[in-house]
Design a protein around this nucleic acid. Structure first.
Lengths: 233, 233
DNA sequence: GCAAAAGTGTTCAGAGTACACCCATGG
DNA sequence: CCATGGGTGTACTCTGAACACTTTTGC
């Protein structure tokens, strides 16, 4: 009855690429390691998968421990298991999490030394954590091209110019806000509120909220099925 | 120096969803298990990650052991690690592989009892292997919507009608072959040969081969960056 | 009033779609 | 010579991109 005897067992870790959006640019949440090796250096938040949990659950637990947040959008974006990648044999499963920075700031657990950094200008990280971030960026871009997941980075009430800036950050492109606005509205994905955001402009932009019905529909199914090879950039 | 002492270690496995295309429909390669538990039942080909290899390398090794093939397109499509998913605690990393059935048939290792089944009509599988197949299908669809990876399923010489049928299978749709053909040709992705496939029609369709330059370019970079929410199906 | 950002209207090119029609071939 | 599938031509629709222009507000 002792199946698979003799097969090697491995330390299994999870690491979280925690991304936020401050209205202007993307940010990443890093922690100062409190254990050896590489103690006191900046790294992604991570932890080990326990006997009684799946890797996904481990990632959720780790994220909650750091931020206090639950029900956060999270997705696997890579597996790092080259034999020599840490001082000791560890296979790490990497997840990226999308969180609304505003919601986060008040809940942060004081147990860790954690800090937001600009995604494009953060301290050197330990091991292969830079590669993990690269993987997260890549997966985020791919996924967000097919599903409207970037809304996970925004507060409940948001404006169209905010989303446009977010897309500009993620894809490093320039968008015509006027056309973007029309396109987004015509999708039915967002609902206009009777309130304006007066903080970021004189005229003020209307707040919107997600149409969760349509959001769920679209987050589960493809936007387009077929490739357009001819329209390559 | 003995870092991470006390953290639990886990059995780490890989399972391969091996997909092929026979010209009419998608097929999956299954094996009859030769070890307990669930001996003699059909399952995905799998194996355990060894001390000196990454999960990816383990999957490559396992695939080669079964099919004799190397340099096969392979990609992670899920992680299955619920505590109760096998008789014993095992976290499985799942990969899907795209192979050209024709190339395979002559190389098959006789060591295993393996058989191709229609992807939509195969025997019940052990554990959560059905979920793994579902994950593979999903990842394949997502990926193939952005990158031309389906060519990995075709032989070196192929015809346009063949590709069209392949896309129809993967997405379960009907395509206008005439428009599909034009669109594909205009991409520059394939190169016409001076030879026709006379086996599948009277008139015969021209063979093409991949333009590997353009293929590599397109497989590495997005086809489209921005979503079109409005054109939802 | 003016500057600045939000948002609407309008135009135009080109991609996607539908389908008529021609081509090549084996029986 | 006709049935079959391969492939081209063509007309129409509609999206996406460009951009002039109007609206709203704070100073």
């Amino acid at each position: 009855m002792d199946f698979y005897k003799g097969e090697p067992k491995t330390l299994l870790a999870v690491d979280c690429v925690i991304l936020g959006f401050n209205g202007e640019s993307l940010e990443i949440l890093l922690v100062k390691r409190d254990i050896a090796p590489e103690r006191n250096k900046w790294s992604l938040m991570g932890g080990f998968v326990q006997e009684d949990e799946s890797p996904e659950k481990a990632a959720t637990r780790v994220l909650k421990k750091l931020t206090g947040l639950e029900n956060v959008y999270m997705e696997n974006c890579g597996i790092f298991g080259e034999p020599g990648r840490e001082k000791r044999r560890v296979v790490s499963i990497t997840y990226f999490a999308l969180i609304d920075t505003k919601q986060y700031k008040h809940i942060l657990s004081e147990e860790y030394e954690a800090k937001w950094f600009p995604l494009n200008d953060h301290p050197k990280l330990i091991f292969d954590h830079e590669d993990m971030i690269a993987a997260a960026k890549h997966t985020l871009r791919t996924k967000a091209a097919l599903y409207p997941i970037l809304f996970e980075l925004l507060p409940e009430k948001f404006t169209v110019p905010q989303i446009a800036i977010l897309y500009e950050c993620v894809y490093d492109i320039f968008l015509d806000k006027r056309n973007f606005s029309r396109k987004l509205l015509s999708s039915g994905l967002i609902i206009k509120l009777n309130e304006k955001d007066k903080e970021n402009s004189r005229k003020g932009a209307f707040f919107y909220r997600l149409n969760t019905e349509i959001y769920k529909e679209k987050i589960m199914s493809f936007i387009r099925y077929l490739p357009s090879w001819s329209s390559v950039d």
